[in-house]
Design a protein around this nucleic acid. Structure first.
Lengths: 217, 217
DNA sequence: CGATAAACTGAATGACCATTCAGATGCCGT
DNA sequence: ACGGCATCTGAATGGTCATTCAGTTTATCG
């Protein structure tokens, strides 16, 4: 069950623990395969409590999406605040997407979300705002880079759209563990495209990847 | 129900009708939401028959994936045989992917397949071979183009990988009906990337899209 | 024309799960 | 220490399917 000793009794902590458990289960078994009992078991509680807190399974899943959004935003902001210039920021985004943090590059979850977005409205909204946010960040970086003279792009909007889409596409292979697609290949292929698309003049130092740090699960 | 008058009694046709019905339902309701009764209703038969032919729902779904593969291959081969040179072929592939035919550009189905591939082995294999096939075709076109002097690429394998991934990424927006992503935008953005990546010298005439022809459903 | 098998049906059967519920347990202010 | 409220539990309850089955229709072929 894997319950940290810390706050076994904290009454409020229970709610969030359930949401985290839900996310973990979704990642493993998919939205469709996630049952109340899975969540309860993973969270170390009873089924009853899950329903007590969220009323229904559907509601629990939706709410966990909200938590996911929060983590995503936090992670993105945090990471971007660390970077110095546009080139560095862009590189950081590539790393994030390749799976550096717990949320942004959690592609199995994204594939699930995409599929669910076609049939569930909460999922649709969640993925839409997550995606919008990500693309906006990318666009901002590109615009900054153009202003700073680091990038040369005719149409930043198009460029960001395309680079974002390329990430998604590469991510599919990553999530499905396609032979030949690794974290390294991902960043490599994407960075090359970015260099080409944005006409980055001096992409030198960025070739060295950072230390690893995988998902909590 | 929508049963064509043609072969209501054809005994063998029934099987395939069921498979097509299954695919239709999957596209609409997703793998997870597809019930035996949905398929039966859509095919205009009884639940019993679906199970009679395929033994189980899971088996019916798997088998329908095989039919999908067949259609995909047929469509791809047909389309490629029509095109003249590498540039034209490449353009045809872009059109196919944008949803020109019934199978290749049926992106809702692809999103479903990706998600299912994470949990179901038949789906995993299906998507893998479909994807491999598609990328191989792309690679072939690129290599031909290089040989013919139409394209200039350092590493055709990387280029095809990237262009294929870009398609997938753009396709997600298409499937999810992201505002701002249409068939036209899709081909437009992709073609521009291809021109850049492959250094296509003379992409002129291809800017005009062909007549529409959507999915049967 | 039978007769045998294949195709087909619709009504059980039973498993699996979300949800409900009656009550236990801990918490907090007084 | 006590009343009351939030939290929590585990065992019903009931609905929704996949699957089974007993039997009917349709095709095939000698």
């Amino acid at each position: 069950m894997a319950i940290a000793a810390e706050d076994v009794k904290a009454p409020s902590g229970r709610r969030e623990r359930i949401l985290r458990a839900a996310i973990d289960v979704i990642r493993e078994r998919g939205f469709a395969g996630t049952r109340v009992s899975d969540i309860a078991e993973r969270a170390g509680t009873s089924q009853g409590l899950v329903l007590y807190h969220f009323g229904s399974l559907a509601e629990a899943l939706s709410t966990s999406l909200t938590l996911l959004e929060d983590e995503f935003y936090t992670e993105l902001d945090e990471e971007l605040s660390l970077a110095e210039g546009p080139i560095d920021r862009l590189w950081h985004m590539a790393e994030l997407a390749s799976g550096y943090g717990p949320a942004v590059g959690d592609w199995r979850l994204w594939l699930e979300l995409w599929a669910r977005a076609m049939h569930d409205d909460d999922a649709r909204q969640a993925r839409e705002s997550l995606d919008r946010r990500w693309r906006a960040a990318l666009l901002t970086v590109i615009v900054e880079g153009v202003a700073a003279g680091d990038f040369v792009v005719a149409d930043p909007a198009r460029a960001s759209l395309r680079l974002a889409a390329l990430m998604d596409g590469l991510a599919i292979q990553l999530a499905l563990e396609d032979p030949g697609m690794t974290r390294a290949t991902f960043t490599d292929l994407w960075w090359e495209a970015a260099v080409l698309e944005l006409q980055i003049s001096d992409p030198k130092r960025h070739k060295l990847p950072r230390k690893r740090a995988r998902n909590r699960a």
